[in-house]
């Protein structure tokens, strides 16, 4: 059994190392032999530190400037978005304001013409395809506030009647226009009285009249009024003018009337609250 752990440590090398380092230490403490080398190393270290610090500072500055640029870009984008938003809001406000002015003007006109009992509605839709080509001429008014409106009451736009209510839905009012072929409107002019029917073309109605019932010479351009004979519309409201006379047979003619109000140019419509008693 071994009495001690095995070792192999030649003392000579260590002794040399010890003496050498002791000599170096002594000479450096006593005579500062390696002061220059130490100073050089310290200076190099300091320079390296300075350079690395400078580099790291520059990198830091660059990174910060990148971040600042990024922030500026983001801020710029946000500002652009805000400007766009403000522009949009301004546009909407101006549109609203313009619309309000239009409503006020329209309301003043309506009150001027029809005294009271008028509700103002904005158009919801107009079947343009049908209106421009075919016989059915209907518009739908927006009634989201669900105002109580009767059927078959006069509807006007601009300064003239344009049709009458046909059906009332939850949020819409269906209006049949004078130019719809299913609509019949009692009219009069200086020359005649007749029931004018829509002819399925925009702003045009016509009525048949007997040549014996009056003189139809030089009537083109004459103003046409409501006669009030249907019991729906006021009498003596201008609705249009005679634009053509077509001969149908020896004693019958067709009087074509161009309506005054154009649904394509109107945004607001007035609806009478109830069927007026006056005929």
């Amino acid at each position: 059994m071994a009495r001690s752990t095995p070792t192999y440590t030649p003392v000579r090398n260590y002794a040399i190392g010890f003496l050498l380092s002791a000599f170096i230490l002594f000479s450096d403490i006593r005579y500062e032999t390696f002061a220059n080398i130490r100073a050089f190393v310290h200076a190099s270290t300091l320079y390296s530190q300075m350079i690395s610090r400078g580099l790291s500072e520059n990198i830091g500055i660059t990174l910060v400037s990148f971040q600042e640029n990024k922030n500026l870009f983001r801020e710029n984008k946000e500002l652009k978005e805000q400007i766009l938003k403000i522009k949009t809001q301004d546009f909407i406000e101006r549109k609203d304001y313009k619309e309000k002015i239009q409503i006020i003007d329209f309301y003043q006109t309506a009150i001027g013409v029809f005294k009271n009992d008028v509700d103002i509605f904005k158009i919801a839709s107009l079947d343009l395809t049908n209106y421009l080509c075919c016989s059915s001429h209907r518009i739908y008014l927006d009634n989201t506030s669900q105002v109580q409106i009767d059927k078959n009451v006069p509807v006007f736009a601009g300064s003239s009647f344009i049709g009458q209510t046909k059906n009332i839905y939850t949020n819409f009012i269906e209006v049949i226009l004078f130019s719809d072929i299913n609509h019949l409107l009692p009219i009069k002019s200086n020359a005649f009285y007749c029931d004018a029917r829509g002819i399925g073309k925009p702003m045009l109605i016509s009525c048949k009249a007997s040549k014996n019932n009056g003189s139809f010479e030089n009537v083109i351009g004459d103003t046409v009024f409501t006669s009030g004979l249907g019991g729906v519309f006021f009498k003596d409201i201008e609705i249009g003018s005679i634009s053509g006379i077509n001969s149908l047979s020896i004693d019958e003619i067709e009087v074509v009337i161009t309506l005054k109000a154009n649904p394509l140019e109107e945004t607001f419509y007035g609806v009478m609250k109830k069927v007026h008693d006056e005929i």
């Binding site: 190392g17 380092s21 000599f23 230490l25 002594f26 450096d28 403490i29 390696f34």
Partner: peptide
Amino acid sequence: NVVGFNML
């Protein structure tokens, strides 16, 4: 601060 100390 001196050369040789750590060596020793």
